[in-house]
């Protein structure tokens, strides 16, 4: 009786195939939970648009809109809310859900025992988050158009623009969140990152109101890049060179995040 070797190992599937497998898990979860998330992801931005764009807008418009370049407050604000929503979805989906996948429901730990590599797990989750951002943005854009809050047909390009902005937040934050030891650290991101960005990135009022020394800081933030991009498209005032800068900045940030994510996930999951 001879000893025979086990059957030869099948060739490993490609990265894309593995990433999609990792994505599938999140879609299954989402199918069960999408109903309750409708409120926070779709309705929230609409309410902001209603309260600030229409309610507060009526006060601003009656006071004069010269500081806004002559556009109504609603049209000034709507693309900013599109950008803010993309950022909020990105940060929300890539902090606690990433952290919890290691610590609480251990989705990553389960996936790790399958052929998925840490980088596949990261990219699958990131892809899911990107899809969420795109969905939310699409819904908001439709509403924007319906309320006449956009001036130019270029606003349809707001969908890839907002999605890219979201990716530029989700990729690096997800890469960092997996290394976090205590969930309370996220509070600092929300309070000292997201909150000031949301309030001071030419969102609710034009940058010209900020003191001069703060302007370079504002220009350097990803949210301002995204707001400028979305607003330029929505008002039809975007120049090709400005578009190239904004898109280049956000794409570079995303690429950096994705590179880092592969490494941090490996370090965290293969211990």
């Amino acid at each position: 009786m001879g000893v025979s070797p086990p059957a030869a190992l099948a060739p490993a599937p490609g990265s894309w195939e593995l990433t999609v497998r990792s994505l599938r898990c999140w879609i299954v979860v989402y199918r069960r939970t999408w109903r309750s998330s409708i409120w926070s992801s779709f309705l929230g931005p609409l309410l902001y648009l209603g309260a600030m764009g229409f309610g507060l807008g009526s006060l601003v418009d009656s006071h004069g809109t010269a500081a806004l370049g002559g556009v109504s407050y609603l049209r000034f604000l709507a693309p900013a809310i599109l950008a803010i929503q993309a950022m909020q979805t990105a940060v929300g989906e890539s902090t606690y859900p990433v952290f919890g996948s290691v610590k609480w429901n251990k989705i990553y730990i389960a996936a790790q025992a399958s052929p998925l590599r840490p980088a596949d797990i990261y990219r699958g989750h990131l892809l899911f988050n990107t899809l969420r951002i795109a969905m939310n943005s699409a819904v908001f854009l439709i509403v924007m158009a319906a309320f006449g809050a956009a001036r130019s047909p270029e606003v349809v390009l707001g969908l890839p623009a907002a999605t890219l902005l979201g990716l530029a937040f989700a990729a690096p934050i997800g890469a960092w969140a997996v290394t976090v030891k205590e969930g309370s650290s996220f509070n600092y991101v929300f309070r000292f990152g997201m909150m000031p960005l949301m309030l001071f990135s030419a969102t609710f009022f034009p940058l010209s109101r900020l003191p001069g020394w703060l302007l370079p800081v504002a220009y350097a933030t990803p949210l301002w890049q995204g707001v400028a991009l979305c607003r330029g498209l929505s008002l039809g005032t975007l120049t090709a060179s400005a578009a190239a800068i904004h898109v280049g900045y956000l794409a570079a940030l995303s690429a950096l995040g994705i590179w880092a994510g592969g490494r941090t996930y490996r370090r965290r999951l293969y211990v």
Binding site: A67, F205, R209
Partner: peptide, 29 residues
């Protein structure tokens, strides 16, 4: 040991107040 998380919670309304003081207030009058 989380006192900083708690203390930093106060910044949220203060950021709002600041943004209104600097920017929005002027737009609204």
């Amino acid at each position: 040991h989380l006192w900083l998380v708690f203390a930093s919670g106060i910044t949220e309304p203060l950021f709002y107040l600041l943004s209104i003081g600097i920017g929005l207030g002027v737009l609204v009058g």
